[in-house]
Amino acid sequence: MNDTLQEWFATGAVASGMLGCGMRLPDATCLSYSFNEICSRECLDQVLHRLAETTTFLSGQGLAPRRLTWTFERGQLFLFPRPDGALLVLATQPNTEAAENVDELAEEFFSLNAAN
């Protein structure tokens, strides 16, 4: 995974209310960052694998997602699949800056990837 992505994860993705974020590459390797103790890197890796399964399942039903939003009582998990099979996950607290700006963060992330 290139340095630009790692740098973006470590700094660019930091927003108020961001619990953690991560990326799963098509070869199933993961890079995750935790910004809150309730959301460890290991957990985020597991979340990414789970969400990859769901994305595959949905695609099998003709529902190829551009974004998945899992809403829980105290937080949300946003998943953005990339055409090449890579996945971006953002875990946020509700009604926070991070939750309200996930599309912008994802767009930034995708543009970063396009440039690298």
Binding site: L19, I38, P65, R66, L68, T69, F72, E73, L77
Partner: peptide
């Protein structure tokens, strides 16, 4: 997912398609 990250009860999944 709820076991991996303690975010409380699950409410819903929204799937944005094309």
């Amino acid at each position: 997912l709820g076991q991996l990250i303690p975010l409380g009860n699950f409410d819903r999944l929204e799937i944005q398609l094309a």
